Amino acid sequence: MDFQLTDDQRALRSGVRELLTGRFGREALRTAADAAEPSLDRTLWRELGDAGFFALRLPEGEGGVGLGLPEAVLAFEEAGRVLLPGPLVATHLAAGEVAGAATGETVVTAVDGVLVPWLVASDVVRGDASGAVPVRSLDPMTPLHRVPGGTAGSGAHDPVGTLLAAAEQLGSAARTCEMAVQYAKEREQFGRPIGAFQAVQHLCAQMLVRAEVARSAVYAAAVTGDVREIAGAGLLADEAAVGNARDCLQVYGGMGFTWEADVHLHLKRAWLRAELGQSAAEAEELLATAL
């Protein structure tokens, strides 16, 4: 069976990448990271709506694009590459159910456990956020609230949401792998690029393996839609995003620990995504039960 992307899927991925790199490139990323308080770019949100980002899986008869889960995964992978902030998954899942979500006019967040991202900036909150209190977020671009009495790993997570979050993790893992390889080519030590040293080569090779294994799992789960495969894809994507960001930081050396480098932003977002939605323990239990 051929699981290669079709020409239309490649064109979709290319178009989303062009849009996101043009509107949320490194300068915009750094501006968002350096801001005193995280804020949502409503203009960009509406542009995503105009491009069909939130309505990708909505039938054409309902004003959507009429594509499937594999195409949505490709779009969210690109969002993960650039660390696009905002409740992207919740708004996408609300398209067709919440007025304005499909077009980007309405920002939607969801209560899915203990932590709720972008609560104040959202127009619609799906779930009970009563008594939610703001907490300090590890990710400087994602504001968080904690719901008193909320339960992590409640088992009520939408499998599609879990997969789209995994796609974001995949995009981040692929990007940090590229960043490490590029830096290894440019940074010199002892008169040679550090990429010439075997230890650095091993780190980069390990990063590539993680990203590609996660990619295979995420893409396969997008085709089958099986909840068990989605759980496995989420585990592998979280591992790839966190592990690759850590290894990328090692390749960067002391520079990687500075605020000026972007590596820490990928690591912090990967850590945060791994804590939102379906937990690793819950996914492991689901897979163990299936076995």
Rank of each mutant, 00 (worst) to 15 (best):
residue 47 E to K: 10
residue 125 V to Q: 14
residue 118 W to I: 00
residue 183 Y to V: 03
residue 43 T to W: 00
residue 44 L to C: 09
residue 147 V to C: 06
residue 96 G to T: 08
residue 134 P to I: 04
residue 104 G to P: 03
residue 27 E to K: 12
residue 190 F to M: 13
residue 153 G to E: 07
residue 85 P to S: 12
residue 202 H to Q: 15
residue 138 L to A: 14
residue 251 V to A: 04
residue 166 A to D: 04
residue 216 S to M: 14
residue 7 D to W: 12
residue 214 A to N: 00
residue 43 T to N: 12
residue 115 L to W: 05
residue 151 T to K: 13
residue 178 E to Q: 13
residue 178 E to T: 07
residue 142 T to I: 02
residue 268 K to G: 00
residue 212 E to G: 00
residue 259 W to P: 08
residue 220 A to I: 01
residue 59 P to T: 06
residue 194 I to S: 10
residue 21 T to N: 14
residue 8 D to Q: 15
residue 127 G to M: 09
residue 199 A to N: 15
residue 152 A to D: 15
residue 217 A to S: 15
residue 236 L to G: 00
residue 200 V to H: 05
residue 281 A to N: 09
residue 46 R to N: 02
residue 29 L to Y: 08
residue 30 R to D: 12
residue 239 E to M: 10
residue 264 H to E: 03
residue 125 V to E: 13
residue 174 A to Q: 10
residue 191 G to F: 13
residue 141 M to Q: 11
residue 157 H to N: 13
residue 168 E to V: 09
residue 149 G to V: 12
residue 11 A to K: 14
residue 84 L to Q: 04
residue 8 D to E: 15
residue 136 R to P: 06
residue 50 D to G: 10
residue 284 E to A: 09
residue 130 S to P: 09
residue 43 T to E: 13
residue 192 R to Q: 15
residue 178 E to Y: 01
residue 144 L to T: 04
residue 72 A to T: 07
residue 116 V to R: 02
residue 272 L to D: 02
residue 171 G to I: 03
residue 160 V to K: 00
residue 274 A to M: 02
residue 51 A to L: 10
residue 51 A to W: 07
residue 103 T to L: 10
residue 172 S to R: 06
residue 104 G to Y: 03
residue 268 K to V: 05
residue 96 G to Q: 08
residue 22 G to T: 08
residue 98 V to M: 11
residue 58 L to A: 01
residue 193 P to M: 10
residue 78 E to I: 04
residue 270 A to Q: 03
residue 150 G to M: 08
residue 18 E to N: 13
residue 203 L to R: 10
residue 18 E to T: 14
residue 116 V to I: 15
residue 103 T to D: 14
residue 157 H to L: 11
residue 223 V to F: 09
residue 137 S to T: 01
residue 153 G to K: 05
residue 133 V to A: 14
residue 279 S to V: 08
